[in-house]
């Protein structure tokens, strides 16, 4: 352990955001019986997991990591996930969309734009039900998307997992009310107040190891609706679409079908931060799932999405 005197430093915004998030995570541990972290392998859930590590050190993180696996994940994400779980001594629970398809819980979309993103909601709710999780901790941030701007830290869901924007509990000061009726549960978003820039700056200042896919690499890709997508096996190409090899990186990671890739040469955290600072498009601008309609995120949230 290294010792430091922080009193003469000012409370920077990153330290304040970190303190707020750790406070929220500790409230979850105190107020719920069976919470879990929803771990997607994306940078936001990596930061949440890191914050949980700091919040409870030297004890282990008192929540399992739950990964909803669409079956269409980048191999790098899975490798990273397994190494992280090993290093933290955490418990990993995988909810499989493939299994939901095989057991007839959901039906696979067809066509060129088929995505398993929407199907995840059912798998997630089934996984919550199966393990009786009463709080699912996610890495969503309010600045990501319009429908999230009013999200609470402790977001109440009814027994169908639904989010009612008109029936959310007011949150004042730093008092969080996690009381619930039997069958109800909560989604908790400890990094609600962070922006994409904050997340990367924090990753840099804490030197958090990241999946290689966030940095530039050569990949087989194709272009659709002005976006670069990975030419992996699960993607069905239109006749006019051609595969090229480009130097790309992910700005946000979802499953393969909806993760837009950025042409980029950013090979370090410093490069990424510089790239984001000069970027004029939001990170979700690269996500096909948000483009389906002006309010698609709101619709998915009401149905029980993260």
């Amino acid at each position: 352990m290294n010792s430091e005197n922080r009193n003469r430093e000012k409370m920077t915004h990153l330290r304040e955001l970190e303190a707020e998030s750790i406070y929220v995570l500790r409230e979850v541990a105190a107020q719920f019986e069976c919470p879990a972290i929803l771990f997607s392998g994306g940078k936001d859930s990596i930061v949440v997991t890191h914050l949980a590590y700091k919040a409870f050190y030297p004890a282990r993180i008192p929540f399992p990591l739950v990964h909803i696996d669409t079956g269409h994940n980048f191999a790098e994400t899975i490798e990273y996930r397994d190494a992280l779980v090993e290093r933290l001594g955490a418990q990993l629970i995988v909810g499989s969309v493939q299994e939901s398809i095989d057991t007839g819980r959901v039906r696979e979309e067809t066509g060129y734009n088929a995505s398993r993103n929407r199907l995840q909601t059912t798998t997630l709710l089934d996984t919550i039900e199966k393990h009786k999780f009463d709080a699912a901790i996610g890495g969503a941030r309010r600045d990501e998307e319009k429908a999230r701007a009013k999200e609470r830290f402790f977001s109440h869901r009814d027994e169908f997992g639904q989010w009612d924007p008109r029936n959310q509990r007011p949150e004042l000061w730093d008092i969080y009310n996690g009381h619930k009726q039997i069958g109800e549960h909560f989604r908790v978003f400890p990094i609600s107040n962070w922006t994409e820039m904050d997340v990367w700056q924090y990753i840099l200042s804490e030197r958090i190891e990241m999946p290689s896919i966030y940095f530039t690499h050569r990949r087989r890709v194709f272009q659709r609706d002005g976006q670069w997508l990975a030419a992996e096996e699960c993607m069905k190409l239109r006749p006019e679409e051609t595969v090229e090899i480009r130097e790309v990186r992910c700005r946000t990671i979802g499953d393969i079908s909806c993760t837009g890739l950025t042409i980029s040469r950013a090979s370090s955290l410093e490069d990424i931060i510089e790239e984001i600072a000069s970027s004029r498009v939001t990170e979700r601008g690269g996500r096909a799932d948000d483009k389906r309609s002006e309010t698609s995120m709101e619709e998915r949230k009401i149905a029980g999405y993260f």
Binding site: M1, E4, N5, R6, N7, M11, A19, E20, K54, Y57
Partner: peptide, 18 residues
């Protein structure tokens, strides 16, 4: 006073510690 793996000699208002 602990913040994650760090030991602190003092903190200021706003910090989450153990």
């Amino acid at each position: 006073i602990n913040l994650g793996e760090h030991q602190l000699t003092e903190t200021q208002a706003g910090e989450s510690v153990a």
